[in-house]
Amino acid sequence: MSWQLLPTGEMTLHLRINPQHPWQPYFDFPDLMVENEDERMSQGWATYRSLLKTGQWQLIPSGPGAGN
Rank of each mutant, 00 (worst) to 15 (best):
D38A: 06
T8C: 13
Q20F: 05
M11I: 14
P61Y: 05
P7G: 13
T54D: 09
S42L: 11
P30S: 09
F27R: 05
G44K: 01
S62E: 07
S42Q: 07
H21A: 14
E37H: 09
L59W: 13
H14T: 08
G9N: 10
L59Y: 14
E39P: 00
S62I: 02
L13P: 03
L59T: 10
A46Y: 04
H21R: 11
P30V: 11
W3D: 02
N36P: 00
S42D: 07
G55I: 14
Y26I: 05
P7R: 15
R16A: 05
I60G: 04
Q24I: 02
L52G: 03
Q58M: 10
L32Y: 13
M11Q: 13
A46F: 05
E10G: 05
D38R: 14
N36A: 08
R49A: 11
E10F: 00
E39C: 00
Q4E: 08
P25V: 07
W45N: 13
G67F: 03
P64I: 12
M33T: 09
D38F: 10
F27T: 01
P7I: 15
Y48G: 03
Q43N: 11
P61S: 00
T8I: 10
R40V: 07
R16P: 15
K53M: 11
A66S: 15
M41W: 02
P61N: 01
E10W: 00
E37T: 08
Y48K: 02
E37M: 09
Q4K: 09
N68D: 01
G9A: 10
